[in-house]
């Protein structure tokens, strides 16, 4: 049994919110550089160069990479041998978000009620996913999610008979519908299986996986590769203004499902695919 105080959780989440909004992870930076090297459209190349310049300014002057600093999505993997001391855990996580967004000069983009739409002014609450895992550590992933791309995401309840071809078409159709709106080059997170809500969470989680790391299931890894190629043949390109680099990567997660179903969720993320992970 190990004791972790909620102050430690607050501080880490605060720092991670700020870090995620100022610095992209190495895999995304590398994928943008690779896209620039391979882009055939001159305008596309220029835009990718601007994205690189933008990342440099964000890092050196502490200006968020994108003004949409997102709704804070937090994955908490809590070791079952951890004892959490201090305040209520959910309140602590939201306090970390609050401090990060206020002290980090990040945009407050959350409204208290989806229809009354009054801004909460501190970007809370976050979207928190808990998972109990073996061990005595807590692994926290903070993934601020922008809504230009979130709005273009979909859940499709396919039939078992639709099979892998149905999954491919659902993904490609989602990317076509998103077109220039989701700020390509995009990252595509796909969740296949589970239930209606499980596949959506899988898709979100898929976005936090390193782009250089394929699925450990061989046929899923093949599917990731095939879909990336097909998406990049659609022609949208950087900023949707034409080109070969519409997506930087496709990450797929799967889960067992019901004999009657084939749920598929496609979570689109812009090139500002933010995720920071720490184990405490």
């Amino acid at each position: 049994m190990r004791t972790i105080h909620t102050d430690t959780i607050i501080n880490n989440i605060k720092e991670m919110c700020i870090e995620a909004n100022l610095h992209l992870a190495k895999d995304v930076v590398g994928a943008i550089a690779h896209a620039k090297d391979t882009e055939e459209s001159q305008l596309g190349k220029k835009i990718l160069g601007q994205l690189q310049e933008n990342m440099d300014i964000a890092a050196s002057e502490s200006i968020p990479i994108c003004q949409d600093t997102g709704m804070a999505v937090v994955f908490m993997q809590i070791g079952q041998d951890v004892h959490i001391e201090g305040q209520n855990l959910e309140d602590a996580i939201n306090e970390g978000i609050r401090q990060g967004y206020v002290e980090g000069y990040l945009r407050k983009s959350v409204v208290k009620d989806p229809l009354e739409r009054e801004n909460t002014k501190d970007n809370t609450p976050g979207i928190i996913h808990y998972e109990i895992v073996p061990g005595e550590n807590i692994t926290i992933t903070v993934a601020p999610k922008g809504f230009g791309s979130e709005n273009m995401s979909r859940v499709c309840m396919l039939k078992p008979a639709d099979g892998i071809e149905g999954v491919k078409e659902a993904v490609l159709e989602t990317v076509r519908l998103a077109g220039p709106n989701a700020c390509p080059p995009i990252v595509v997170g796909v969740g296949i299986g589970g239930t209606f809500e499980k596949c959506a969470i899988l898709a979100k989680k898929a976005l936090t996986r390193d782009l250089n790391q394929s699925s450990s299931t061989p046929y899923v890894a093949e599917l990731e590769k095939e879909l990336l190629e097909k998406i990049n043949q659609l022609g949208y390109g950087p900023a949707g203004l034409g080109g070969r680099n519409t997506a930087l990567g496709v990450n797929i997660e799967t889960y067992p499902t019901h004999i009657a179903g084939l749920p598929v969720a496609i979570n689109i993320c812009c090139h500002v695919n933010r995720h920071v992970m720490r184990t405490i």
């Binding site: 601007q50 994205l51 310049e53 933008n54 200006i63 994108c66 949409d68 407050k108 700020c183 812009c270």
Partner: peptide, 25 residues
């Protein structure tokens, strides 16, 4: 260009709220 907000901010010389201040951003 979407997602280039740091770069684009460099072209803005001044900014003044002229209406609906209560709407924040």
């Amino acid at each position: 260009v979407g997602g280039a907000g740091a770069l684009l901010s460099k072209c803005i010389q001044s900014s003044e709220v002229i209406a609906y201040d209560d709407l924040g951003t």
